[in-house]
Design a protein around this nucleic acid. Sequence first.
RNA 1: GUGGCCGUAGCUCAGUUGGUUAGAGCGCCAGGUUGUGGCCCUGGAGGUCGGGGGUUCGAGUCCCCUCGGUCACCCCA
Length: 434
Amino acid sequence: MSKSDARAQFRAPVGTRDIVPPESAGFQRLVNLFAEHARLAGYGLVVSPLFEEVGVFARGVGTSTDIVAKEMYEFEDKGGRSMALRPEGTASVVRSFVENPPPVLPWKVWYWGPMFRYERPQAGRYRQFHQVGAEAIGTDDPEADVEMIALAWDYFEGVGVGDKTLSINSLGDARCRPDYREKLMVYLAGREEDLCAEHRKRYRENPLRVLDCKKAECVAATSDAPRQVDSLCAECEDAFGRVTTALAALSIDYVLQPRLVRGLDYYTRTTFEIAAGSLDAAQNAIGGGGRYDGLVESLGGPPTPAVGFSAGIERVALALVAERGTEQSSEAPDVFVVDLCGGVASVLARDLRRAGIAVARDFGGRSTKAQFKAADRSGARFALVVGPDEVAAGTVSLKSLREADASPGSPRPENTQTALPRATIAIEMKRILS
RNA sequence: GUGGCCGUAGCUCAGUUGGUUAGAGCGCCAGGUUGUGGCCCUGGAGGUCGGGGGUUCGAGUCCCCUCGGUCACCCCA
């Protein structure tokens, strides 16, 4: 089989990609760190299906959103049911909440996994991408909003995203949003001619979306448009004030972004987004979220306030690379077994692995030189050499692969090896590695 | 869904107005060193030039189509 044959046959689908070592180590790290932050904040893991009935997203996310209207992977299963690959995580989690009502509120859960959106791929945008996220369902306390923002912020801090901006806004609630919407509609109607071609026709469908438009015409036309934050009802006003006050107390800097609308219909009151300064691409949002007090009810549950957040793993990874360059893998083994008589590596490696030591080895009975080359490349700290001499003496030879003078271009140094008893090698290596 | 740019070795790329058998660096494998990595030297493997069609005596090079990549619009993570 030639390589070109194998390559010509199949490729990863458009907009998807394989995440392979060493990059996958970074991916795993981002997931693991979120798991840890979530655990510390009292969130339990929820694993929900990657696909749902279309209605979960249509009613949850909203049929007027781009995500549902034109980006969903929909299919009919063999039972004739209309299904869709999940384009985001919150709707599924809420469906799960409604289906399995927890005994105690709030229900605090986190998740991670792939999401699917049928879009043209570009920098930082894929058809299958991965998110970590958290939801707190069953409380309207603004402090829950703050906990969610802090979780997001501290996660990004923890993984190493230094250059980032938190934008927040309040979209009001069922009481004050309609009033604001009306105000904005009137304002836009008076300036219809100034809007971009797209929104001149469509602003009536969702006037809030015009605020999010990046076209110069729309930005100019809405520069002094009424702001939702100025039209909040007393309750929303109070809630938003408590959020901003608490953020200040936590020393989390934020920018009030009255134009922050976000493309999902379910948001109410607090919405927020975190953008990475190192990403100058069009896609610089690494995470976002907000409150969705009406979603549980619209998916058939009892009226239940909730707040959530999600982050895009690929985007975070891109931000980290942009900020600090490629990180090297931390998957290097502890030791590399060099087997010079053949057949002894498997037993030695297993002894060490059972003791919790990461062991790599070579295959194919290659030359000493080839095995040491492989050992060097593996990044292992030590080589353990077993040959006829060692077998006869009941020992294993330990050699450091990280000499202090191992600068590129240096000549081969003297080989310094230590003979260790074979019988207690696992214990001894544990001690040396610690 | 629309548009710009780009497809030559595992990777990064060169390849003259179209002209013989398509090259380099890095990486990989082996030898130099019959038990020792990095540096060095020598050799080797690896390509239907993304795919198809056309023009031509002759196409990696020109034309068309197609697939893929990439960036942007839209929108979002």
